[in-house]
Design a binder for these strands. Structure first.
Length: 818
RNA sequence: GCCGAGGUGGCGGAAUGGUAGACGCGGCGGACUUAAAAUCCGCUUCCUGCAAGGGAGUGUGGGUUCGAGUCCCUCCCUCGGCACCA
């Protein structure tokens, strides 16, 4: 009896040999086409869980497949290492974020090694190390000098009790501090922004990208382009310096339906436009709004709130005097922070009008209107009414005519606005790349000179359970000298959003050893752009969007020579456990280690692929994992036990033909399914083939040579999926090391083609019979055959034949009158 | 609330508008074994029938089509993302 399949022993042995032989080390090579296969790097939370493997294992399979196809494949790995959890660990466990992070990385690296991926660890990138973050700072300076970084006030979540800034994640429930349960308020702070909106229009263009439609759509909605008009409302109010309010509308055609104007409570004119008798009420409402968190304010199902300011403004189109209100559903950050309310044609405005008994005036009637009053909001287009000289016009024409009039009279203009806001990158935290800026009383804001980078994080900062960023209290960090006047100055104590680190890490992988630049220009040019980027669908908007912005900004500075970082993108779905995404902070993680120890990495890799379509993800359960493990065991015994031909010199040509057909059909299917990332059906094809091989082995009908050929094809197809087992069996069947340096198998189209098909015969769309026919069957033959079948006649005899539909190689549908 | 995706056997899932349930798990029966595990063979959507067969069936209710899991509309549920599209 042959030796048993022992994944533990095999996997360890091959991992060691591959490492010792450096077979996965990557060099630039002009003789082969390059392929940059990038997988989103993990956050250093401490352990790799099943969710990480779900991201990493199938992408490793694909990278191995490309490698066998002859590409020079770069498939690197690294760690996204700055962020809030490290700092929380520091506060609650007294361990320094650096130590916590590096310890986690060590553990995660060990787990990665057990997976058997082709990562070239010489290229590892860790974002929290000074030789990485000095370049993150360098990019900040470049963006600043390019006019893309600026300072402005922006609200942060503030816990009045902890006296600290809270991340959105730390605000729980209906706006409470996660530590002390105190209601969270907003506080305005001067912070740094990147002018991402400058690229809004270009970021909408995905036309040259091979990306999933859903991801492109999410990004498009994120940019949120709206075309409309900006209208100036003249203010002649006493004591108000500003002479106009600007409102934005996408529906200038409804302007005659305006019955009130609304400002965001934060709008700068609110205070001046409030009459003394309304001041108390307005102040109270504004204070109440400041306590609202984003989530509450955004909820559409809650009751509308707002207050009247006591003042009015004139609608330029009809000269009407219209009241000004404030309402929290008007957002200061969108458009001009002021809107014209048209309750007849906007759902939210109608709700507001009903609550506060404000008038509603219909100005558009639907094309099919019979003239009766309608009580529901109508947001479509139609014919204009109650609109003065524009009455009777279709609203599309009215839109144009009113815009033209606004522009002619100087009352407003056509404009485009975006929902996209500039990227706020300041974080009031320790564990991030310090923003390399200095504040000097004499010189103002002064950037740190490039040659002084990195601005190092002080190792001796204190982590208090409450209080603001530890950097703020670290005197040795804060106090510095001005690079311009050498006088005393203070450092910026905010650090950068970690999305900044992950916006350029893929450039660093190409040349992580580079000391005088963020990357080596020649190597970067060889590898970039990334041919295939894979990662969780949860990053469809923010990370992927920021990285695209970054590359466009770098392009405009002349640092890179391409427009888009990721030519092809695949977003895999999310692994759910106990009703939510697996994450350490939620505490619903499943570690792969036990499964690996028991069944082997090849089985775990295989199971994660077999579970379902990669792009869908799904609820984790391990019910089927033994199935993949058993299959690998069957493969082991299929190949390690001898094949005994039974034909005694005279082979059955039909049997051999079928055998070759089966082999080449499998090569064709597996190749196509890998190319489409259909790992689940790729595995099913491999299983079907190995089941077939078992049957053939039992009968022994094919020659020994043919059998051996089929086995080596099978192992080559298996190699990306189960790299350890395939390598072991490759060696055992007498092939030269290593299977992972072999070319991918080509199939013979002639042999892969089906010779016989099952023709389905339907009567009135119902399956009534099946018949096996040669694939070359003609339409006439098929129809004749179908009509002549006994089982079919039972349903057609005595009935009138109306049609016979023929779908080549599939169906004959006989339609009879009933 | 908004944006995006998904609902198919007991379970994970398969199916260019053309045989619904591939492949695997679980279950049932059998072989091997003193026995168990492992392994191998067979059956396994539901109802009806001795059988051949017949009928129903892809979250809900409609529609388009010779034919719908697949396309269109309504609603319900689950998951991912989020910074009232004025």
């Amino acid at each position: 009896m042959a030796q048993k399949y022992n994944p533990r022993e095999i996997e360890k042995r091959w991992q060691q040999k591959w490492a010792a032989d450096h077979i996965y080390e990557v060099k630039e090579d002009s003789r082969r086409p390059k392929f940059y296969a990038l997988t989103m790097f993990p956050y250093t939370s401490g352990d790799l869980h099943i969710g990480h493997w779900y991201t990493m294992a199938p992408s490793d399979v694909y990278a191995r497949f490309k490698r066998m196809q002859g590409y020079n494949v770069l498939h690197p790995m690294g760690f996204d290492a700055f962020g809030l959890p490290a700092e929380n660990a520091a506060i609650s466990h007294g361990i320094h974020p650096y130590d916590w992070t590096m310890k986690n990385i060590e553990n995660m690296r060990r787990q990665f090694r057990s997976m058997g991926a082709i990562y070239d660890w010489n290229r590892e990138v860790i974002t929290c190390l000074p030789d990485y973050y000095r370049w993150t700072q360098w990019f900040f300076l470049r963006l600043y000098h390019a006019g893309l970084a600026y300072r402005a006030e922006a609200p942060v979540n503030w816990c009045p009790r902890c006296q600290t800034v809270l991340a959105n994640e730390q605000v729980v429930g209906e706006g409470f501090c996660e530590r002390c349960n105190t209601p969270v308020t907003k506080r305005e702070l001067e912070q740094w922004f990147f002018r991402i909106t400058k690229y809004a229009e270009e970021l909408l263009d995905h036309s040259r990208l091979d990306w999933p439609e859903r991801t492109k759509l999410m990004q498009k909605n994120w940019v949120g382009k709206s075309e409309g008009a900006e209208i100036c409302l003249r203010l002649g109010h006493e004591g108000v310096e500003q002479k106009e309010i600007r409102v934005f509308t996408t529906r200038p055609d409804t302007i005659f339906g305006v019955t009130f104007f609304l400002l965001a409570p934060e709008h700068p004119l609110v205070c001046q436009l409030t009459t003394p008798e309304h001041k108390a009420e307005v102040d109270e409402y504004i204070a109440w709004c400041r306590r609202q968190n984003e989530y509450e304010r955004v909820a559409m199902d809650r009751e509308k709130t707002g207050v009247f300011l006591g003042s009015y403004v004139v609608n330029p189109l009809n000269g009407e005097r219209v009241p000004i209100w404030i309402a929290d559903y008007v957002l200061p950050s969108y458009g001009t922070g002021a809107v014209m309310a048209v309750p007849a044609h906007d759902e939210r405005d109608l709700e507001f009008a009903r609550k506060f008994k404000l008038p509603v005036r219909t100005v558009i009637v639907p094309p099919d209107s019979t003239g009766e009053e309608f009580t529901e909001v109508y947001t479509g287009s139609g014919t204009m009414v109650n609109s003065g000289e524009f009455n009777g016009l279709p609203s599309e024409q009215g839109y144009e005519a009113i815009c033209a009039l606004l522009e002619e009279k100087g009352w407003g203009k056509r404009t485009v606005i975006y929902r996209l806001r500039d990227w706020l990158i300041s974080r009031q935290r320790y564990w991030g790349a310090p923003i390399p800026m200095i504040y000097c009383d004499k010189c103002g804001i002064v950037p740190v000179p490039e040659e002084d980078l990195p601005v190092l994080l002080p190792p001796d900062a204190e982590f208090r359970p409450t209080g603001e960023s530890p950097l703020k209290y670290c005197q040795s960090f804060v106090n510095t000298t001005c690079p311009q006047c050498s006088g005393p100055a203070r450092r910026e104590t905010d650090t950068m959003d970690t999305f900044m680190c992950s916006s350029w890490y893929f450039l660093r992988y190409t040349s992580p050893e580079t000391g005088d630049a963020p990357f080596g220009a020649t190597k970067m040019k060889y590898w970039l752009p990334v041919n295939l980027y894979t990662g969780g669908v949860e990053h469809a908007v923010m990370h992927l969007f920021y990285a695209r912005f970054f590359i466009k900004a770098l392009r405009d500075m002349g640092l890179v020579n391409f427009d888009e970082p990721f030519t092809r993108l695949f977003n895999q779905g999310t692994i759910i456990y106990r009703g939510a995404k697996m994450s350490k902070s939620r505490g619903n993680v499943i570690a792969p280690d036990e499964y690996v120890a028991e069944l082997g990495a090849d089985a775990v890799r295989g199971y994660l692929m077999f579970i379902g379509p990669w792009e869908l993800g799904g609820e984790w359960n391990d019910r089927g994992i033994v199935g993949v493990s058993r299959w690998l065991n069957r493969v082991w015994s299929l190949i390690t036990t001898d094949y005994v031909p039974t034909h005694r010199g005279v082979v059955d040509p039909e049997a051999e033909k079928e055998f070759l057909h089966s082999t080449h059909k499998t090569i064709k299917e597996v190749t196509a399914e890998l190319e489409k990332f259909r790992f689940n059906t790729m595995l099913a094809s491999l299983m079907e083939f190995s089941n077939y091989l078992s049957k053939v082995k039992e009968s022994g009908v094919v020659s020994d040579a043919l059998w051996r050929e089929a086995i080596s094809y099978f192992l080559l197809l298996l190699a990306p999926t189960a790299p350890h087992l395939a390598e072991e069996l490759w060696t055992r069947t007498g092939h030269p090391y290593s299977i992972h340096n072999q070319p991918w198998s080509e199939y013979d189209e002639e042999l892969a083609r089906e010779e016989e098909i099952t023709l389905v015969i339907q009567v009135n769309g119902k399956l009534r019979d099946k018949v096996i026919v040669p694939a070359s069957v003609s339409e006439v033959e098929a129809k004749e055959l179908a009509l002549g079948r006994e089982r079919v006649k039972a349903y057609t005899d005595g009935k009138k034949l109306t049609r016979v539909i023929y779908v080549p190689k599939r169906v004959v549908n006989i339609v009879v009158a009933s």
